[in-house]
Amino acid sequence: MLSHFGVVHLTKLKYGEKAVVTAIRLGFNARKKLLTYGISLGTIVKMEYSPSFSSLVNINIQGKSFCIRKLDAKNIEVIKYSIV
């Protein structure tokens, strides 16, 4: 359903793809924690690593790299972003 509008879950991004955060469907405290890592609506995230066997996705925000669990990443919606 989401893909009709070009919106996907964060976990669906491939290595090196960039996307803009459009929705965060997590609790208040989780959203506050993401904020301190620089993630809020409109933030550009870059997928660094998300192997299928792993429970984590590795993303990059402004050159800073960190992991969150796929379970949480599925609640973050993004729209792929590219400059042409």
């Binding site: 405290n29 924690k33 984590l56 590795n58 960190f66 969150i68 949480d72």
Partner: peptide, 10 residues
């Protein structure tokens, strides 16, 4: 703590 994060330093 709810959201689990892990920093990946260079």
């Amino acid at each position: 703590t709810g959201l689990w994060t892990l920093e990946m330093p260079n």
